[in-house]
């Protein structure tokens, strides 16, 4: 039974986002922090259905003190994370945040939330709000 919970959570996200909405999130996964830690990684795919590029400039979450967009880069066998100041999704295309690549870095978790909400900002506007149950 337990393994259906994440599927339901994803279905909820998909159901909430209109397929014709300009920006759609899919494959949303937010990890629970490792034991003893207050930070976690988040992954999702953003699809831009609008005719204009959409640039995410900031991500916030009421359940976390800070959320940053990061990218893990491996160069000459050395792994480093760099912070991305913005991420642009071109018209009719997608950008994937996935393990070992771009990711959301959620820092300073507040309590132990059952649901994590992410607000994606394009400058002053919140262009997408997603809520998902964090997984292991």
């Amino acid at each position: 039974m337990n393994r259906f919970v994440p599927i339901l959570a994803v279905a909820l996200v998909v159901a909430c986002s209109d397929a014709r909405a300009p920006l759609v999130a899919s494959d949303v996964t937010i990890n629970k922090p490792m034991p003893g830690m207050q930070m976690a990684a988040g992954y999702l795919t953003l699809t831009n259905n609008s005719p204009e590029p959409i640039t995410i400039t900031d991500v916030t979450s009421p359940q976390y003190g800070a959320v940053e967009m990061h990218e893990t880069m491996i160069e000459d066998g050395i792994s480093r994370m760099i912070e991305l100041s913005e991420v642009t999704i071109e018209p009719s295309s997608s950008v994937a945040f996935e393990p070992g690549g771009k990711h959301l870095m959620l820092m300073r978790q507040k309590g132990e939330p059952d649901l994590v909400t992410l607000e994606l900002h394009a400058d002053e506007t919140v262009v997408l709000t997603i809520s998902v149950a964090p997984g292991d």
């Binding site: 990890n31 490792m34 830690m37 990684a41 893990t72 792994s79 994370m81 070992g100 990711h103 870095m105």
Partner: peptide, 8 residues
């Protein structure tokens, strides 16, 4: 441990 992406 403060490495939530590539280390896990």
């Amino acid at each position: 441990t403060h490495c939530p992406d590539v280390c896990p």
